[in-house]
Amino acid sequence: MKLKQYLFSQLAITFFPIFLGLFFITSVVFLVKIASLTSVITLDFLELFTLFSYVIPQIVFYTMPISFFLSLVITLAKLAGEYELTVITSFGLNPINILKIFAPITLLLTAMLLVISVGLIPKTKFLTKQFLEKKKKEANFNIKASEFGQKFGDWLIYINAKDEKVYDDVKLFKTDKKNDQFIISQTAVLDNDKGSLSFKLNDGKAFIIDSKEFNQIDFKSMYINDSIADSKLGIFTDTYSYWKDNIKRNDNIDDLTFFILTSFFPFLSLFLVITFGYFNPRYEKNRAVFYSLISVVLYYVLIKSIGDKILLHAIYIIPVVWISGTYLLYSQTIKKEY
């Protein structure tokens, strides 16, 4: 029990600096991308924070597997360099026993990554697109007072004054082959409900003119709904329905395989942890970090190059290939010596 606590404490000492460092660097990259949106739309601090909160699951997903794998390798390599692994081995704990100690926490991390990647990321991406569409619609509807030639969808619009989203003395005109429509309103309010844009007119008159009739309608309130652009986002009900529909349409399958295989990376690479972490400091140099980085790059290249081609089949083919290869490497190196 004390040995487990000691190993976990050493892992925590290594893991948190690496994870927080990668988290900070990745956060800066995403913040720069978010800040670049201000050239298209106007965002206040709260809206910037909202957008950043939507990308936090992605940041965690991209940094956590690499951080945890590197931390495991560095922890064992540090213990080996200080001859502590030699002492632990002399008490009868071979590399496989060490592997069994770290396996449960690694499996728990994998489950958490699956929830984040398959469950949270699609939802937060949808919320991000919905938020940006809402802001872009507001940016498109930038009506200025006392200017002619401005449009709201198919309507020509003219206003005398404007205060935030409240417009005074509004006049709208639209013509087509059948008739002409003219609307005057004392006030109007722009409403943007989760990307659904509407224009509420208060206390006005509507005139419909064709070749035979002239009709007038007096109204207390009138809505012109989403005249600029219709939403193409659809709806997001739940994660299961989202992936079920995508599999039916054969859409975004490469993302699903990438999410699943990346989530399993730390667990699938446990044989590499003991292969790179165990070394004799009297005869060998500590190249654990170098070998680990090569393994990370190789795994990600593998799941992107092969996974994008064989799609769902990669979920069982790549793990079998990776575990077989890493176990073979372990059996040819560390297993013979310990």
Rank of each mutant, 00 (worst) to 15 (best):
Q10K: 13
I13G: 06
I13F: 12
I18C: 11
I25E: 04
V29W: 05
I34R: 01
A35P: 03
S36P: 05
T42P: 00
E47R: 12
F49S: 14
T50P: 01
Y54M: 12
Y54N: 00
Q58T: 10
I66T: 08
I66G: 02
L72W: 01
A77C: 02
G81I: 04
Y83L: 04
E84W: 03
V87G: 05
I96F: 08
A103H: 03
I105W: 01
L109T: 01
A111L: 15
L114Y: 06
I116N: 14
I116C: 03
S117P: 11
V118A: 06
P122I: 12
F131P: 14
L132C: 03
E133G: 06
I143S: 05
K144Q: 03
F152M: 12
L156H: 09
N160R: 15
K165N: 15
V166K: 08
D168F: 15
D169A: 07
V170L: 01
Q186M: 11
G195N: 04
E213S: 13
F236N: 00
T239K: 09
K244E: 14
I247G: 02
D251S: 14
N252P: 06
D254S: 03
L256K: 03
T257N: 01
F264G: 13
F267Y: 04
E284V: 05
E284N: 12
Y300E: 10
I303V: 13
K304V: 13
G307E: 10
D308H: 14
Y330L: 08
Y330H: 06
Q332K: 15
Q332R: 13
Q332H: 11
T333A: 06
K335Q: 02
K336Y: 04
Y338T: 12
